[in-house]
Nucleic acid binder design. Structure first.
Lengths: 235, 235, 235, 235
DNA sequence: CATGAATGAGTATTCATTCAT
DNA sequence: GATGAATGAATACTCATTCAT
């Protein structure tokens, strides 16, 4: 592991847009050559896909370079190596979802509305960003080996917990929600139902002979998550 | 990937005992000469762990041989190659859980009791067989590439769906459960809640600064699953 | 540096013959395939030449494999890596010269005869084993980075010092040598005169416009060493 | 090796000051704009160290740029490439020692005094300029591949030979020295004893378990060289 | 003059698999 | 049946050098 050499990339701030959005942005025709930012983002986007699809061990540096249409050497120039690039992808992925989440502004809605919005957002985000779930899968297969080293990860998540706590508190006050709910458990339940379906639909489709990638099945499961969560929250 | 060469292994029947039980079962005392079987099981058990921990791409044939304490050549002798071995591991994993499940005998219990038993069994099985979840993760990361080729996988699962359908039907009749429940959705919800917690606890522990591998957290989540499922089933 | 992985090669005893003699032995026509010892020696001999000629940093693993006419993979199989192979070469080189030296049996000769024999042997050995000097050059350029880690190197050299001490002592007794000579200084002087000429003859030939690789020059320098050493030892 | 591309650098005259003295010389105060020269010297000094420490093959262009604290591109601007830079270092090294030597003015001293001065100077120069010995090592490892191409190298050395010849002739006349001494052999003996000790002290310290980098050992060896040379010169 | 992005050809090392005994 | 030597195709990473600004 060449992590000692990541110094250079450490100073690179992980760009919120990079992992999540560069992927879908239209192929802007800029000068092409000597565009450091563009190159760096392209690498990050390509790496995100590759790591998500093949896992850390299965991901190939050459494949990332090819996907990003850059010279493999640049990957080392900008990120230092496979490890450091993976860490950048990992942090970038979390930053991206938490940033989008933060834009929800749940506190100005009724508890029921807010909770529904959170559930729907989460489900949609998972649906639209399959790489995020892939990265999580990979990282967990390694027991969060890399994430544990990331200092700022915790801070990134306290606002989320606070937000859910607020919703729950207000919901209890209005009589919409049962009391004694753990915000972390609520979030985990939402994530569990959403993530499991999308992540595992491939084997599930096979064993149950039912194409879970069809729109109707996906939509139905989205409804199902809401039903389950609200059934549980019901006082 | 030399998948064209897996023909040899196809003739190998997957042993129910292999993945799930050979690990803990006592060394059966039969005449001898059973070295072949013993070796084969050791390989399967070692491969299960390796694939579960590192994923398909990250797993190393050498590592499997070393874990199984056998000569690498034997692995090719018995299974034909990495791909075929992986398929054997995959099928064996499903066979193992479905076999254990089948021993539950849910039909002789009340719907509520039966459902609780199913939830508890699933949770415990996931807890006791982390490799199973690892294998699923890996296989889904590859979009069920290998599982899709496995012919008998569907048959293996129809009894499970039937069993849950039975429980639900009886529950509706007794007034314990709401009507209109999809047995597959119920099973997927149970699996989702159990699997997600265990699979993702490493990153979750990190982002929420809370050690989800502690017994108290694990037990609490087991209770949580039951609560969620029953809240949903409540008429 | 992958030295943590050299465990395997560590158990390989360095063969005295390997570095020094396998090089000049006739190409025995043995079965060719599956001859571990032969392969291992061929690698060591090839590596000795490569490291001697190009230095540690300049040596190429591919070049070694090609010189040894083996698959590059075997080099890792037998030695673990470039580092470990280099260490084997280094130790082997010292073992080879010290073993040959030990066969001199200086103690049964007169001090003068013994000393002359030592000088001549050293000169001839350097002349016949240019790789040895090359290896020393390389290792010293790295400030003995690898040699310092070699445990048995010191033991290998105490007999030499003892032998020279014996010669000097007897020479003082017979009146042939001056007293107060440090055996290590004597050896170093012999080595210095021999080594410097052979190692530096390329630049020396150029700057002095005189071909020091000619037999006459080489022989003359051999005589010169003897003269210098005996002039110094003269009481 | 892009040796065909060194044409550019050929026109660069090697500055006497560059390798040997730029390092310690005070920042000459001239109008300004001298950045070009300053940069060029910094590169040469950095390259001298790098090549001396790691050898030609082991030296890294990036490392040289970093040591010189200049942009790598400048290195190509001023010297054309690695090869040409190496040649400049090599020539500069010889020019530096011969220039310093020329300032000795041996002809106005007694033969004995002059000879002692030459020995002491050589020893001190080697001691103070470890890069010089490193460069020689490297160049000889390549059998003077680059030096052979340098046209003016021979001229640079004839004064040295003449100077020593003069000393020897006068010494024979005064009866201080034996006759029939080859000036080149004398110089080579002086250089051999000095160079070998300093170059090889790392391995020698290890094999003889004696720290030859200590001041006492170094001083003692300086004395030893004088003793050896004068013992040999004694009529 | 100066900078840093870009590149293709290496360079050490590892992998799954096969072969000879 | 069992063993370990042998192999070619990757695989992560590095190097000297050039290009655009």
């Amino acid at each position: 592991m060449s992590e000692a050499k990541t110094a250079k990339s450490r100073s690179k701030s992980v760009d919120v847009e990079a992992a999540g959005q560069a992927i879908s942005s239209p192929p802007v025709e800029r000068p092409r050559l000597r565009d450091a930012e563009r190159t760096s983002k392209a690498i990050l986007a390509a790496a995100t896909k590759e790591f998500a699809e093949r896992g850390y061990g299965g991901a190939r540096v050459d494949a990332i370079a090819e996907r990003a249409k850059i010279n493999k050497r640049m990957l080392y120039h900008y990120f230092g190596g496979k490890d450091a690039l993976y860490v950048a992808v990992l942090e970038g992925s979390y930053v991206a979802i938490r940033s989008a989440e933060a834009r929800l502004d749940l506190s100005h809605r009724s508890p029921t509305e807010g909770m529904r919005e959170l559930v729907v957002f989460t489900w949609k985000y998972f649906l639209d960003h399959p790489e995020f779930l892939g990265i999580l899968s990979t990282e967990n297969m390694q027991k969060a080996r890399f994430l544990k080293r990331s200092a700022r990860i915790f801070e990134l998540h306290s606002p989320l917990v606070a937000e859910i706590s607020g919703l729950l508190g207000r919901g209890v006050a209005t009589g919409d929600f049962r009391s004694d709910c753990d915000p972390v458990k609520i979030y985990m339940s939402i994530a569990a139902l959403g993530s499991f379906f999308l992540t595992n639909r491939w084997t599930l489709s096979t064993i149950f002979q039912r194409n879970l990638s069809e729109k109707s099945e996906i939509d139905a499961w989205g409804e199902h998550i809401i039903e389950v969560i609200f059934a549980y929250l019901r006082p």
